[in-house]
Simulated assay, not measured.
Amino acid sequence: MTSTPRLPLLAGLPLAVATGLLMPVQGRINGALGAALADGIAAAAVSFSTGLVVIIAVSFLLPKGRAGLARIVPAVRNREFPPYYVLAGCIGAFFVFAQSFTVGLLGVALFTVAAVTGQTLSGLLVDRLGIGPAGKKPVTGIRVLGSILTVAAVAWAVSPRLGGAGSGLLELLVPVLLPVLAGFLMSFQQAMNGTATVHYGTPITATLVNFVSGTALLLVAWLVKLALAGAGNPLPGQWWYYLGGPMGCIFIAVAAMLVRSLGVLVTGLGTISGQLLGSLGLDLAFPAPGTVVALPTVLGTVLTLGAIILATLPWPRGALKR
């Protein structure tokens, strides 16, 4: 097994925040691509396919990428980690599909807050189960309290959009639940990728395996959709529609590297902080059509960030121990 470098906290956290800033931009791009194609599955498949092309090129061009390629089969064959970890990319595929399908309906800020809720809650479970390379961590009362406050903050943030009654409320709740589930699964993906990275010796290979499985799943889903409902619109000509996949490469690779150094929860805290800051900035500076950022959304997002800090920072052993 080849060792991967560990980053100190002061270097790792800013890197996690900077990486998180990419996710709202990726969400806006994938959402716009889904609207242009009139097909969320096709948009997700295009995003993953472009990312796969980029990470294949990186894997063959860089010496560490080529060395990691040689480690894939032995690591899986020798069961150095559970074989189903190679399917972690299917979680990423689902997340990108959720972006493509719901960002146009919810706006980047609401999508991010919903995804953050799921990711925060699952971070507790992932640490409790010890799925990541950092091993098991106890679930404390402080972290549970922070998770409950996160859910309350999200409810406050989405309250301006939940003001309608009847079918309007129901129509919004369904799209909100999709990013919540996608975010919930993300902690598992990061833990699985972090463990695989330790055995591959590089996050490049973990990213490649992610994009292979994710692209395969999305292409199968798109073919089924094509057979049942036909094709959507043709591919748009603007180059920026195809940047979502390469951004996903950066996010997956950096998160896989940081999980070993910072752990799942602290890595999540950093990337979530970037997501919250980036998504609000994006919706304020470049709002999508129909997107309204109300004061409760801003304040609820700030409260969400505070609740995440409460839930994930290391606290003294005696603090509300459970």
Rank of each mutant, 00 (worst) to 15 (best):
residue 179 P to L: 05
residue 114 A to D: 10
residue 210 N to V: 10
residue 97 F to I: 02
residue 12 G to Q: 01
residue 222 W to V: 08
residue 150 T to D: 14
residue 113 V to N: 01
residue 239 W to V: 06
residue 218 L to M: 09
residue 50 T to P: 06
residue 155 A to D: 09
residue 276 L to H: 02
residue 121 L to S: 15
residue 97 F to E: 11
residue 148 I to G: 04
residue 232 G to R: 00
residue 107 G to P: 00
residue 203 P to C: 06
residue 320 L to A: 02
residue 269 L to A: 13
residue 249 C to K: 07
residue 194 G to C: 12
residue 254 V to D: 07
residue 108 V to H: 04
residue 126 V to R: 08
residue 106 L to M: 05
residue 141 G to F: 07
residue 84 Y to H: 14
residue 267 T to H: 12
residue 16 A to W: 08
residue 254 V to G: 07
residue 240 W to D: 00
residue 76 V to F: 07
residue 169 L to S: 10
residue 134 A to C: 11
residue 219 L to F: 12
residue 60 F to S: 09
residue 184 F to L: 05
residue 230 G to M: 02
residue 49 S to E: 08
residue 96 V to W: 13
residue 211 F to G: 00
residue 242 Y to I: 02
residue 283 D to S: 04
residue 264 V to I: 10
residue 133 P to R: 03
residue 206 A to Y: 03
residue 300 G to S: 03
residue 147 S to A: 15
residue 6 R to H: 14
residue 320 L to V: 01
residue 231 A to F: 12
residue 187 S to A: 13
residue 252 I to T: 11
residue 40 G to Y: 13
residue 286 F to S: 08
residue 231 A to Y: 08
residue 156 W to I: 15
residue 54 V to N: 09
residue 241 Y to A: 03
residue 146 G to R: 05
residue 16 A to Y: 06
residue 232 G to P: 13
residue 50 T to E: 04
residue 253 A to L: 09
residue 155 A to Q: 08
residue 304 T to H: 10
residue 31 G to T: 01
residue 233 N to S: 07
residue 39 D to F: 10
residue 40 G to N: 15
residue 65 G to I: 02
residue 34 G to A: 01
residue 266 V to S: 13
residue 61 L to P: 01
residue 137 K to Q: 15
residue 52 L to Q: 11
residue 139 V to D: 05
residue 229 A to S: 13
residue 267 T to Q: 04
residue 200 Y to D: 00
residue 105 L to G: 08
residue 99 Q to K: 13
residue 102 T to E: 04
residue 314 P to N: 09
residue 199 H to P: 07
residue 289 P to T: 02
residue 31 G to D: 01
residue 49 S to A: 10
residue 261 S to R: 10
residue 56 I to Q: 02
residue 237 G to L: 12
residue 72 I to E: 06
residue 215 T to Y: 03
